[in-house]
Computed example of a mutant assay.
Amino acid sequence: MLVVSMIGALLAAVCFGLSSVMQAVGMRRVGPVSQEDPRSLVRAWLTVPFLAGTGLDLLGFGFELVALRHLPLFLVQAAVASALAVTAIAATVVMKERLGRGEKLAVGAVCLGLALLGCSAGPEGATRAHTDFYTALGASLLGLAVLGFLAGRLPGRWRTPILGLCAGLCFGVLALAARTLPELDPVRLLREPATYLVAVSSLIALVLWTMALSAGAVTTATAAMVVGETVLPAVVGVLVLGDEARAGWAPVAVGGFLLAVGGALALARFGELRGGPAEGATATAAPAEAGR
Rank of each mutant, 00 (worst) to 15 (best):
M95R: 11
A167Y: 04
A221L: 02
T210D: 09
T220I: 11
M95A: 10
L84A: 14
A83W: 09
T127I: 14
V110P: 11
A139K: 00
T160V: 04
L147W: 03
V207I: 15
L165V: 04
T87N: 04
A115T: 14
L174G: 07
P161V: 02
G152E: 00
M225F: 12
G108C: 08
I162C: 00
V86T: 12
G138P: 01
A121I: 06
C170N: 05
P155M: 02
A215H: 04
A115F: 15
G118Q: 05
P193E: 07
L163P: 04
G216W: 03
R157Q: 08
A199V: 15
G102E: 11
M225W: 03
H130E: 13
L137N: 00
R159E: 00
I89W: 08
L189S: 13
A223Q: 06
L169E: 05
L213K: 07
G164T: 03
V218L: 09
K104T: 12
R159W: 01
V94N: 07
G118P: 10
R101F: 15
P193A: 11
P182K: 08
A145H: 02
A115G: 14
V93C: 05
A88M: 09
T195C: 15
V93W: 13
V110R: 02
L213N: 09
L117G: 08
F171K: 03
E97V: 08
T220K: 09
R128Y: 05
A178I: 12
V86N: 05
L190T: 10
C119I: 14
L144S: 04
A91K: 05
F171R: 01
A109M: 13
V173R: 00
T219G: 06
G108P: 09
L150V: 10
A88L: 11
L84Q: 09
R179T: 06
C170M: 14
V207L: 15
G125L: 05
R179D: 12
Y196I: 10
G172N: 06
L197H: 01
E103D: 08
R157K: 03
V198Y: 04
G148Y: 01
K104Y: 10
V218R: 06
L112K: 00
L181R: 09
L142Q: 01
A194H: 10
L114F: 11
A151I: 03
T180A: 15
G102D: 12
I162H: 00
A178P: 11
L213P: 01
V86P: 04
L117A: 07
G122A: 07
K96W: 06
L190Q: 15
C119W: 13
F171H: 09
S140I: 00
A217D: 15
T87E: 07
G102P: 08
G143Q: 02
Y196Q: 09
A199C: 15
V173W: 02
G122H: 06
Y134R: 00
D132W: 05
P186F: 12
C111K: 01
A221M: 04
S214Q: 08
A217R: 09
L174Q: 14
M225N: 13
